[in-house]
């Protein structure tokens, strides 16, 4: 398991390093070729860096960290992601489990899920702002909605994929429905549930940036990006994107670690071991 971690970390560092070098080259070439003056909607904007070189990025990053804007934004946005994740999973997972176990519930809910499954967060944004106000609640509910749909499908599929032989074996050993749910269905479906949580976590980060457009206030990563887009300041946008990327990577690593811990019992292909 440790070997797997180290190799993944190496790969991440290497591929990100390559990306950084490629960007460095592109920005060097770009600063010579790209216009500094661009037409935007109704007027010209002067002195724009479309591909800011490393020096500008560094300067911007130092400013954002020293002023406290970036650290506080990270804290606020991360908290929203985790709250939305917890709430969404707390609704989605039990609903998915019961949908898979109770035929009548599936019959009723399945079309709803299909219907709402791909509703983009941006479409729900004004609705949630109207219904739940401009505060924290609508932001977290927006994230939770996205998470709930993904984890519902994960839990549903996880339960559906429990091999019949385990259910029959448990029944023939005299297990009650409750015991089967706790000791057979739940552990057998857990790997798929955790996989869906991992996907939902990434989606939560995508959604938080949108959610933070609701009565946007500092500090938050979503507002930082929106503001930088309005100026426009490419270096701020770049720092914001990199920050979110690093946070997503860290979250993903944590989710993967949790998955590995919860599936120690599974047979693994030699490539993973």
């Amino acid at each position: 398991m440790n070997g797997l971690w180290r190799r993944r970390l190496w790969r991440a560092l290497l591929s990100l390093g390559v990306l950084a070098v490629l960007y460095g080259i592109a920005s060097q070439i770009g600063s010579a070729l790209l216009p500094r003056r661009i037409w935007m909607v109704a007027h010209y904007i002067e002195d724009v860096e479309l591909l800011p070189p490393y020096a500008s990025l560094l300067e911007e990053a130092v400013f954002l960290v020293k002023s406290g804007i970036l650290p506080r934004s990270i804290l606020v946005s991360t908290a929203r992601v985790l709250e939305g994740l917890a709430l969404g999973a707390a609704v989605g997972v039990p609903l998915g489990l019961s949908m898979a176990r109770v035929a009548r519930l599936e019959w009723l809910l399945d079309p709803w899920v299909t219907f709402f499954r791909f509703t983009p967060a941006l479409a729900l944004l004004p609705l949630y702002a109207l219904w739940f106000g401009l505060g924290e609640l609508s932001k977290i509910l927006l994230i939770a909605t996205a998470v709930a749909v993904v984890t519902l499908l994960g839990a549903y599929q996880g339960v559906r994929d429990v091999p019949r032989v385990y259910l029959e074996a448990a029944k023939s050993l005299g297990a009650s429905d409750g015991l089967i749910l706790r000791k057979i269905v739940w552990p057998a479906a857990l790997p798929q549930i955790l996989s869906s949580v991992r996907i939902a976590l990434g989606l939560a980060w995508v959604t938080v940036v949108v959610a933070e457009l609701i009565k946007a206030t500092m500090p938050s990563l979503g507002y930082l990006l929106a503001l930088a887009g309005a100026y426009p300041r490419v270096s701020t946008i770049a720092v914001g994107i990199v920050t979110i990327g690093v946070l997503v990577l860290a979250c993903d690593a944590a989710a993967l670690g949790l998955y590995a811990m919860a599936t120690r019992w599974m047979k693994r292909s030699p490539a993973d071991a």
């Binding site: 385990y166 074996a169 050993l173 297990a175 047979k267």
Partner: peptide, 27 residues
């Protein structure tokens, strides 16, 4: 009526001990 299956039917997420004790737990 104890049943032994054609395919692998011991629960892979349980230790040997928990597998052996499952019927007793249910009882």
């Amino acid at each position: 009526r104890g049943y032994v299956f054609q395919e692998e039917a011991i629960f892979p997420w349980m230790s040997v001990r928990d597998n052996l004790g499952f019927g007793l737990l249910a009882k």
